[in-house]
Amino acid sequence: MKVLHTPGTEHHFKRGLSFTPLLNIKMSSPEPIIRSKQTETEVNGVSTQVICTEFSNYIFIVLTQYGKIGTLVSVTPDSRSNDISTSTISTKVLLGKDEPLTHVCAKNLATFVSQEAGNRPVLLGLALKDFSLEAIKQMKDAIKSCQVW
């Protein structure tokens, strides 16, 4: 703040007074406490949306080609291993079709996020039409571009 000509305290006092109600108004809309980033990209001609949201105990990622959350998978680093080089990741389908491909894709897509986010678990919503390796690769890049961790 540059207050160059400060003759007295009266001026400051008035400013202080008028500031209080302003602050009250602002209280109803402070900065959101959770951050999110999103992007939209074409993967093999299919419109794909990524929305990453940061929570203190989770990274929430929605990866969708249907505009929906789809299958919800939790991707959790194994707490037993302290050594990063041998750390393992476990996946659990919380909602939706529990099939091997879902687990493979979820691990492939979210392991690096969990590691980069200080071994935080990832909650991943997958609604995909294309599960090809090439598509998954491109989606990973899209997730990288929405880094909130």
Binding site: Q38, V46, Q49, Y66
Partner: peptide, 11 residues
């Protein structure tokens, strides 16, 4: 299947 409403976020 290429056109869906944009997912949007509101805080």
């Amino acid at each position: 299947g290429s056109e869906f409403d944009q997912v949007s976020v509101h805080n």
